[in-house]
Design a protein around this nucleic acid. Structure first.
Lengths: 250, 250
DNA sequence: TTTTTCAATAATGTCGACATTATTAAATTA
DNA sequence: TAATTTAATAATGTCGACATTATTGAAAAA
């Protein structure tokens, strides 16, 4: 992104979002104004403005006169976000199937081709695979034609980012997993192009929920059984073994 | 709301939200920092913080170095918001029907009774009716048990507030309209309590969309045919003939 | 020892001044 | 006259100082 036309507050918003998603500031951590001023070398106003916007993104919580904190993550939150995402995605897909035209169909076919080709390649770069994966799913729902629902979809996708990397890693390194995943993509495309709305909706909902169980397992394995109730730090570390430029997630 | 524990920025957020929804600042109007400082008698920081949060609420738009403006309203926006709302409400209701228990059922019956009684009364106060109407619909979906979907539902409801008053007025003053509306509420309750998910979902979606056509008609009648393309100010005035304390809308 | 009080410290939140950028109006040129 | 440049004006956006509120830790009391 071209940062030259942004104001300081916007730049700080991007930087802070990135730092939170990448785990520089782990869940629950206090975000002290002074610390942030020193880190980003700016004044109070842009920091506070950025924090205001991060609250809207659910990445930060605040209490009057007690400061700002990075939002906590949890299995419950993970499940809720993905469930909401799967339902919304189903909604968008259903609308797209009802409203989409030739151009929409062609976009799906193109995106599907790009994803399928790359998924068969030898050395898979996680970022590149994620780009193509994202584009495919976006193509599917792009015919839905409702700005608000799309905005909600986007917002939920962003909220799930803190949890996603863990699944991604598993998905692109485990051959069987990736093939199963690819099969679902193909099936999705076929159902959608045949305008078979209800099965398509069921499938996309299940498809989006798959990472949840995988993330739970991957996380729980790494956790000491007795510490199941407070898995935060541990969990966090597991999630962010693979630090990525968050912008590439979109 | 107890404002004593709020910081200035929060108070300004509430005041500005109210002023925008009530039409003190009509759609498209520039929100000059200096004007706002003078109006609310505060400094720059709380104003800018509040504006940041209003952008997240879609009530304000901004461009770097060019200031803040009240978001425009339009028939397209009205339609899109209500459509998204109706789909989300359907989703929440479906989940509530699948998950809700005895306590949920009893809340619905209680809320329904309160709404039915008041809808039959002689002099209907719009605010009181709206309170009961809101509570009834909230009761219906209260079993859904997904914080995120509920948050999305709430947010869409708030976004629709600028359009809602016009319908409300028509609905509580037109006897036939109100009776038809009430019949739908009763039908909804029956379907929901019988856990008849799909018809209930269909009905709630249609029910939520009813205001759209009414608002369109009421608005278009008041508009000069030749000015259909730029109905902003006019439309706005129509919407806000009845100025209300926005907080009561929730 | 435990609890309470109170002062010292540190953090949040607010303000108005200032630097930067956009807009407007006047002046110059074609 | 119309278009362009330039100066004047006005607005946005940023900063650091200051007032307010919370937290900490030591001292006093139970």
């Amino acid at each position: 992104m071209d940062t030259s036309k942004q104001n300081t507050a916007s730049k700080i918003l991007d930087a802070l979002t990135s730092d939170i998603i990448q785990g520089v500031f782990p869940p629950g951590e206090k975000l002290q104004i002074k610390t942030l001023k020193d880190r980003y070398k700016v004044g109070t106003s842009p920091i506070r403005e950025a924090l205001s916007q991060l609250i809207a993104k659910d990445l930060v919580v605040s209490e009057n006169q007690k400061g700002f904190y990075v939002s906590n993550i949890s299995i419950d939150d993970l499940t809720d976000i993905y469930q909401a995402r799967s339902k919304i995605e189903g909604l968008c897909l259903d609308m797209a199937i009802k409203k989409g035209g030739d151009f929409w169909e062609s976009k799906i076919i193109a995106a599907s081709h790009l994803l399928a080709k790359y998924s068969k390649s030898e050395n898979i770069d996680m970022d590149e695979w994620q780009n193509r994966h994202f584009s495919f799913h976006e193509a599917l729902v792009s015919g839905c034609n409702s700005p608000r629902l799309f905005q909600i979809r986007q917002s939920l996708y962003e909220k799930s980012t803190r949890y996603r990397n863990l699944w991604l890693q598993e998905n692109v390194t485990n051959y069987d997993r990736l093939q199963a995943n690819q099969n679902e993509h193909v099936a999705l495309m076929v159902l959608v192009l045949e305008r078979d709305s209800i099965p398509a909706q069921k499938l996309i909902e299940a498809h989006i929920m798959t990472p949840v169980e995988i993330i739970k397992k991957t996380t729980l394995i790494k956790l000491d059984g007795s510490k199941l109730q407070r898995p935060r730090k541990f969990y966090w570390n597991a999630v962010f073994i693979f630090k990525k430029d968050w912008r590439k997630c979109f």
